[in-house]
Nucleic acid binder design. Structure first.
Lengths: 341, 341
DNA sequence: GTGAAAGCGCTAACAT
DNA sequence: ATGTTAGCGCTTTCAC
């Protein structure tokens, strides 16, 4: 059995409460008392029993990060940033897999883990704004990504319309005329990806290109294989595209694979742009031009915001933050042989 | 506040103990009593307070998976398998990042989180067998990967020598004569990667090829960039290799990047084999030949073994399991245009 | 088959 | 500045 507060108290000849105060610092403690207690703690190797603390406090010190797939390196990179920040603030972060399924997402919304987590950072893809508004569970929740907008929760997502604009304009500036989009079909009930589609459409019109519905390819998920399948469809068109903007880097990488399978070349025949700036894209052949969001920033901010809510910091209205992003140009649009970076 | 056992007991008109027994099934409960209790539970939506349960039981229900980097898709894929299995068995899995640093690994060994976790699944890379033997902490631990061998803990790792054999023999069968290895320099204090190096050496001799020390390139870590740098060194040799066996897929992918940077082609000029079978290698250009271990198997087994130890199942001696693997051949050695899969 | 009651280790309200 | 004490919700003896 581990050392308890009581043993420390006896050893130091003080009360339980005093030891607790040395440990937690809720109330001031006299210098020499603190000294004695600290010594006892060091000698006996005391560490607080978290279960007891949590039982008493009514909180568990655990927060969850729910993402559609850890397979996506974007989320893996984000997760690490969040894990580190949570640890720094004394919380333990556990990861939940929704597998991008509506059922799993709804269960999380309604507090499947109410008993074990103090708060939730959630990157939904299937649920709708209405689902979130209908939520009754009071566990604090921070939303990330473009799955859902305009709900009474803190929300962090880059400006997807602006980002798509930048991507498409980059392609247009390279004299591409038939620019395809691989993501979500217009009319899909999910909010997700609509913004990127809208940015795509707006950018087309801003550079004077027509919107051709057949150049929008929909996917079931947003993985490599989805990009591959969608690109095959696009290549089967009478007038295939000369450029593609992928919903994310994985989709773009799948698309590049389809292009190569068809015996075509990137970017000579078809230029490709992705989104997320995962490391894989810095080493792919060709390297991938992409929109780079600041994952460290997003993960850290999400954790801090959530913990502030959990700990009932001065109530502020839910915020909606748009972290910075930038276009990173590489071989998949520029061609040639650029240094890795 | 959530519903407690007490409320259920009152509602059902029975004692606390009875409700507990319905929930946990430690003692038999009469049919109609059980019925009443179950109804109360359903009506009030009871869920046990885990902090309280853990406090009482002296365990937290949490296990940790410590890996060198979540960035490596191999570990990300493994982690998901472990998370799912842990959840199935009523445990919560938290991830720890060692960043492949010796300091972090030693802290974990010595129970940095003794208070919060019931057990540890650990994939070490820097610590030595002696470090593990010197461990005093009694928290159950299962080791995975080839970081450490011959220690009194359950251990799961594929047969690295055999796997390396297969990889190198595949290259030799393709008439490659100067087969390089990117991994760890002979003499490195870590056990890690020595086995793959040994398998490489043995396979060379078994096919009648000489061992050329200059064809072994060492790396600091095992990421894409490490493979890139090592391959650049190999390409600068007077007699560069015509094939490369990478410590893992990431290293191999970095190597392919370096090959392309140098204006050479894979596999025409240099064939490449990796290890891990991460999804990225199924979509890279060219697709990557690799050794494929069963990650689902490894992750699930590690969790089950650990939980068995935690729950004090019939004491069996520590086991050492070698899960199955297979060679998956793709374009990076065979060339041509194979279907994705 | 069921009940009563003693804590697990901690925090916080109430004393002094 | 420090001490006393009442639980947090649960499991688990010990009774019947």
């Amino acid at each position: 059995m581990a050392v308890s507060l009581k043993e420390i108290a006896e050893r130091a000849g003080v009360s339980l409460a005093t030891v607790s105060n040395v440990v937690n610092g809720y109330r001031p403690v006299g210098a020499q008392t603190r000294q004695k207690v600290q010594q006892a703690i060091d000698e006996l190797g005391y560490a607080p029993n978290l279960s007891a603390r949590h039982l008493r406090r009514g909180r568990t010190g655990m927060i969850a990060l729910a993402i559609p797939e850890l397979n996506n390196p974007y989320f893996a990179e984000l997760a690490w940033a969040a894990i580190r920040e949570a640890a720094r603030l004394g919380y333990t972060l556990v990861m939940e897999d929704t597998a991008a399924e509506r059922e799993s997402e709804l269960m999380l919304l309604d507090g499947a883990h109410r008993q074990i987590i103090d708060g939730l950072i959630f990157s939904p893809v299937q649920i709708t704004r209405e689902d979130v508004l209908a939520r009754t569970n009071a566990t604090p929740m921070v939303l990330i990504g473009e799955g859902v907008y305009d709900v009474p929760h803190d929300h962090i997502a880059i400006d997807n319309i602006a980002a798509s604009h930048v991507a498409v304009q980059h392609l247009a500036a390279l004299n591409r005329r038939r620019i395809a989009f691989i993501g979500v079909r217009p009319g899909d009930p999910r909010q997700s990806a609509h913004l990127r589609l809208r940015g795509y459409q707006e950018a087309l019109s801003s550079v004077g290109l027509p919107f051709a519905p057949e150049l929008v390819a929909s996917t079931a998920q947003f993985g490599r294989v989805d990009g591959l399948l969608a690109m095959r469809d696009l290549l089967a068109l009478d007038h295939p595209p000369d450029a593609v903007f992928g919903y994310n880097d994985l989709v773009a990488i799948g698309a590049m694979r389809a292009i190569r399978e068809a015996g075509l070349r990137t970017p000579e025949d078809i230029a490709v742009v992705g989104m997320d700036d995962i490391e894989e894209g810095r080493f792919s052949n060709p390297t991938l031009t992409t929109i780079s969001p600041d994952k460290e920033h997003i993960g850290g901010l999400a954790v801090r915001a959530l913990i502030a809510r959990i700990e009932g910091k001065p109530v502020s209205p839910p915020f909606d933050v748009q972290p910075p992003f930038r276009l990173v140009t590489r071989e998949s649009t520029l061609g040639g042989q650029l240094p890795v970076g």
